[in-house]
């Protein structure tokens, strides 16, 4: 028997089929959670945001017409959820300090990426300032173009490029520090 395509499952979910939606959740939860975790650096917050994303997606499914891939559409909702949380008191659980260049440097809260995190690069990304971290996550890890990432984050394309440039510099420095320790 032919396996059901994603668009067929999306169509069934749009019609209110929770089983089809659960199947979409199973397929996409890893990416959505990965995105939320990397943008927030906080596993508990990322789990809440992942749930919020899928609930919002369920509510918005009638308006989804397949212009972008389901995955991109879902990621856009996840990014919106993260940005909304940052503006709320719940999302302000980040320590901020000022770097040598006078710009805010944000270090994620202690439980963000624990010592068991296997990849040093992942930990280095977690210590980037918010704007730089966002563009590394969306453009660097998830492969969105500067235009797409700018659209998701609600910033200018030039800002994305500048943030990526800054992120590269900071990552290089932090990877050197990791290697020295």
């Amino acid at each position: 028997m032919r396996a059901e395509t994603e668009s067929e499952r999306v169509a069934r979910a749009r019609g209110g089929d929770a089983g089809a939606f659960e199947s979409l959740y199973r397929e996409h939860v890893g990416r959505v959670y990965g995105l939320c975790l990397r943008m927030t650096g906080q596993p508990a917050a990322a789990e809440d945001l992942t749930q919020d994303t899928f609930v919002s997606a369920w509510k918005s499914l009638p308006g989804y017409e397949g212009r972008s891939s389901f995955s991109t559409w879902l990621h856009r909702i996840a990014v919106n959820a993260v940005l909304a949380t940052r503006r709320s008191p719940r999302g302000r659980n980040e320590t901020s300090l000022t770097g040598e260049d006078g710009n805010d440097m944000e270090l994620v809260a202690e439980d963000a990426m624990d010592e068991a995190t296997p990849i040093d690069l992942e930990r280095a990304i977690g210590t980037l300032p918010t704007g730089a971290r966002d563009i590394v996550v969306l453009h660097g890890i998830y492969g969105y173009s500067h235009e797409e990432a700018a659209g998701m984050l609600g910033v200018a394309v030039g800002t994305c490029k500048a943030q990526l440039h800054r992120a590269r510099q900071l990552l290089r420095e932090r990877m050197r520090m990791e290697a020295a320790t």
Binding site: R31, Y33, P43, E47, V55
Partner: peptide, 13 residues
């Protein structure tokens, strides 16, 4: 790209 959450989030959803 994929990171598994520590628990199944579906029941809550």
């Amino acid at each position: 790209k994929d990171v598994a959450p520590s628990r199944d989030l579906w029941p809550g959803i």
